[in-house]
Design a protein around this nucleic acid. Sequence first.
RNA 1: GCCCGGGUGGCGGAAUUGGUAGACGCGCUGGACUCAAAAUCCAGUGGUAGCAAUAUCGUGCGAGUUCGAGUCUCGCCCUGGGCACCA
Length: 806
Amino acid sequence: MKKYDHRKIEKKWQKKWEESGSFKLDKDDQSCEKFYVLDMFPYPSGEGLHMGHTESYTASDIFYRFKRMQGFDVLHPQGFDSFGLPAENYAIKTGVHPAETTQKNIANYIRQMKSLGLSYDFEEKIVTSDPSYYHWTQWIFGQFFQNDLVEKKIQKTNWCPSCQTVIANEQVVGGECERCGSEIVQKEIPGWFFKTTDFAQELIDDLEKVDWPEHTKKNQINWIGKSEGTTVKFAINSTDSKEEDFIEVFTTRVDTIFGCTYVVLAPEHPLVLKIKDEIENWNEVEKYLIQAQNKTELDRMEAKEKTGVKIEGLTATNPFNGEKLPVFVADYVIGSYGTGAVMAVPAHDERDWEFAKKYELPIKKVIKLHDEDSENECLTENGILINSEKFSNLSSQQARKKMATWLQENGLGKKQINFRLRDWSVSRQRFWGCPIPIVYSPEGEAKFVGEENLPWTLPQDVDFVPTGVAPLAKSAELKKRTEKIFGQGWQPECDTMDTFVDSSWYFLRYADPKNEKSFCASERLKRWLPVDLYIGGAEHTYMHLLFARFFVKAMKKIGLVDFDEPFLQLRHQGMVLDKNGKKMSKSKGNVVNPDDMIEKFGADSVRLYMMFAAPLEDEVIWNEENIVGVYRFLEKVWDKAGEILKVQPKSSDEKLLRILHPTIEKVTADIAGLHYNTAVSEMMKFINASKKLDLTQSDFEDFLKILSPLAPHICEEIWEMFGREDYLIGLEWPSVKEEYLKRLEIEMPIQVNGKVRAKIFVSADVTEDEAKETALEDENIKKHLEGKEVVKIIFVPERLINIVAK
RNA sequence: GCCCGGGUGGCGGAAUUGGUAGACGCGCUGGACUCAAAAUCCAGUGGUAGCAAUAUCGUGCGAGUUCGAGUCUCGCCCUGGGCACCA
């Protein structure tokens, strides 16, 4: 028999699987139970597949093969999130159309995925930039539009005056444009928003229904950021004292209101401009407003010191004690959150404290802690009120309730729940994205283009170089098309959608990717959705998962789907690091190319090593020196197969069967729980044990079956050498023979006062008395018990004996 | 600052969830084969002492609970990642 050589067999099986349609699935056949295992689909970049993809796609591929062998009909699709900035930037630089780049890159990704042995049916793939897909992205947008889930609002954007274009947050480096280095300014432009905040509460509550990592759930909850509080109206006493004017603030800590020593408005707060004439130091205030306006979000985030300006001639009255307080405008208060104004309590809020220190404002303590020793500020939650008139001596919690009621009764405020979550801005002034299917009447009224005009295609006659308007605005074809359909004077919407929209519903389309009549036939939705297992990187913890969840909830509301959550089970894969434990990056030059590794070690070894080196959710250190371990393992499997073919043992060694069956049991459980690292080590143990022991072909075939999801190529090759004509993929998962699971004799440690002093061999079902007797006869145990009195003996069946002695 | 993780041999990691710490793999040491090397095979491999049996220390540090702690509790230290002035 020849030596194991991955180069000779892997391509062969990849071709065979494809030609025989091994990965095809009849999506209408209902005879078996379904399972839907989903990958986060890649953006097809010019660099090709990276090692992170390799890991996560291998993980889902193993699960797919495993589930199939267990008798499920498994949907395991793949596609491409192909709209996006890199292709457009490349087009601006080289003039090559993004469609062309994208197509080329997709072909390369598919080649790479096949070379890893991934079991996708690419005839059923989806490509988000393909009109047959974005047709339905637009259709869903239309549904949202008609059902009041979309609205047009003003949004603040980063604008590069030199490039004449909107810049994404990640392209702003230190307040400057990544490409040309010009200073970025803030520009307000109108855009479309999805009403994600309508679902804020549901997005928190429904996390209880899914099996996700706890930290991911927590992060989602924190991101949505629910806070319960009260609004409070502070009357404005400007010089001519117009009593009907108020500053309304939002606070979660109304119990601290007697400690309020000033009030702060966000620079965006409309009141500032409204009372402009009454502001004595308007010049100074105006200067600050302009300054704040030109700051990018990043600048404001990164500011080390709080800044602000006192508004002279303006005071705010605390409704509880009539105290007249100074009013500031400061950019540490955000216009879009709460009411855009806060009551500042420097004694009990860190930001207010910092600000008060800098501007020498009074700090008034109104909460006394139960435990004065504690320096933990959080404990103010449980403090007692002081210096708060009739509310003094109440607990914080009681005071919060009573004060809110008092405010409500006097029309000075009300209970309110705020969310940190904002509505989702989906408009992008880009070319390479899904066109927003909206047109405007000559009067400027927005109208959905209508189902009959979908797909509302991306025009071809567009110059990519930015000139200050959205690229689509330059298309004569788009303008002509709009006027032809809707009439003279109608204008097309020229923005495209955020690419997160494309990826917020793609998992629905996989169930019915070629449907031309609907986004997915209802029987298919019913059969395949929701996703049973979703595997992908933790970097999508916030946005992607939240948006996809929003989509499903919004679609359910308008009757398009009938489930609440898209992904029932979610698991993350860890990062792949270089051999020094560092992140791989182009700039560091430490990027490992999967193609090279597959050529060198083979797809089976790459798959196996990825899974073996660390638990799936942990970081994997890619060290080429270590991969030889799994390669040697595969060689041993190969050699054992050769030996069996040559000798054809009549029966298997019983000792080996007592290892094989526990191995099958453990590997089955490990794969089911995605603990691939221990599954591999278990199989290594078996192969090591099989040395010099007889094993029949039939028993070895059971082993091949459990190895096949992880290392499919070598297993199929051996299967064929064994004279089998079918494919391992899709065969039945081996069952465990109970009679070989039970251990006959076990080694039992004997402890004296918790320390192991001897080991005895006893039968597995030894009685407590027998075991104790044997233990006490041991020489070393006797020695350790000398001069001591045995207090008690603890016997843990099949585990150990501990003799407690004094 | 806040949130979420993680500290176990020379290295990646395992430990049935409170029951033999270091499975499996890499590396290393010695031996076999070879003119030699590579590959392969055999043996060994946490530290210290000992020829050995064995003893002793040992899961970031310090306490605690327990017959028994890598695992539980409390307090520290170090470290990785994410988010950012959300009132």
